[in-house]
């Protein structure tokens, strides 16, 4: 069976960007800290708008922040 997975590098990018806290990222992206926690943990897939906002906050392209993978199980 094929499943889809959205992976992200938010945690790494936060630390590379002056050890940005989840709250700081949340404030910049206009969401709550809980949403950032859920996205980082892969438990919530953000909308395209939010994904672009997060990528813009890091000044990185979208593909560097989020990766789409198809997993065969």
């Amino acid at each position: 069976m094929e499943t889809n997975e959205l992976k992200n590098n938010i945690r790494r990018l936060r630390f590379e960007n002056g050890e940005m806290t989840q709250q700081e990222l949340a404030d910049k992206a206009g969401v709550t800290r809980q949403t950032i926690i859920a996205i980082e943990a892969g438990k919530y897939s953000p909308s395209l708008t939010l994904a672009f906002k997060i990528a813009k906050t890091f000044g990185a392209p979208l593909e560097e922040v989020f990766q789409y993978e198809e997993v065969n199980s």
Partner: peptide, 13 residues
């Protein structure tokens, strides 16, 4: 408030 810039509600909420 959690933070001075805390949003009230986002897309996940």
């Amino acid at each position: 408030r959690q933070s001075p810039r805390e949003v009230k509600e986002d897309e996940r909420d």
